[in-house]
Computed example of a mutant assay.
Amino acid sequence: MAPCNCGRAGRSVIVYRLVLPNGVTREYPTRREADAANNRAGGRGSITAVPR
């Protein structure tokens, strides 16, 4: 993997990506926010931690 020259000294930030069944994708800074959004949307989405 090539090094990232993005000014963060190699550290990555984790965000939580919520993908809803209708194809909408949103990212949240915490798992709690992603869970809450998923519950508001009916609870059928999937949440994945992704590096930024």
Rank of each mutant, 00 (worst) to 15 (best):
L18T: 06
A41I: 12
A41G: 14
A36I: 10
D35M: 14
T48E: 09
R11L: 05
E33Y: 08
V15F: 08
S46H: 01
L18M: 09
R40M: 14
P21W: 01
G10N: 07
G43P: 04
A37L: 15
L20D: 01
S46I: 06
R44M: 07
N38D: 06
G42A: 04
A37I: 15
P51D: 02
D35Y: 14
G10I: 06
T25L: 15
V24P: 04
R11V: 15
E27A: 11
V24N: 03
A49Y: 02
T25P: 10
N38P: 05
M1K: 09
R17W: 06
D35K: 04
L20N: 01
V13N: 07
E27V: 14
N38E: 01
R11K: 15
N38Y: 00
R8V: 12
A37C: 15
N5S: 09
G45S: 02
I47C: 00
R8L: 11
V50N: 15
V13C: 02
A2C: 03
R52Y: 04
A9M: 08
N5D: 13
M1T: 02
D35F: 15
V19M: 14
R44V: 02
R44T: 00
V24F: 06
C4G: 05
R8N: 15
R11D: 14
I14D: 03
G42N: 01
G43W: 00
G10R: 05
R8T: 15
A37K: 11
N38C: 04
G10Y: 14
I47F: 06
N39W: 07
G10W: 09
G7N: 04
L20W: 08
R17H: 08
R31K: 15
R26E: 14
Y28M: 11
G23I: 01
C4S: 04
Y16R: 02
I14E: 14
T25G: 11
L20R: 00
M1Q: 01
A49W: 07
P21G: 04
V24R: 05
G43Q: 03
V19Y: 07
P51R: 01
G45F: 11
R32I: 01
N5L: 14
L20G: 00
G23Y: 07
A41T: 07
C4W: 01
R17C: 04
V19N: 15
D35C: 05
L18I: 10
C6F: 00
G45K: 02
G45E: 03
A37W: 13
N38G: 02
N5W: 05
R8M: 13
A41W: 03
G42P: 08
E33Q: 12
E33A: 13
R31L: 07
T48G: 03
R17E: 09
A49D: 01
R26T: 12
R52A: 03
G42S: 02
N39A: 10
V24G: 02
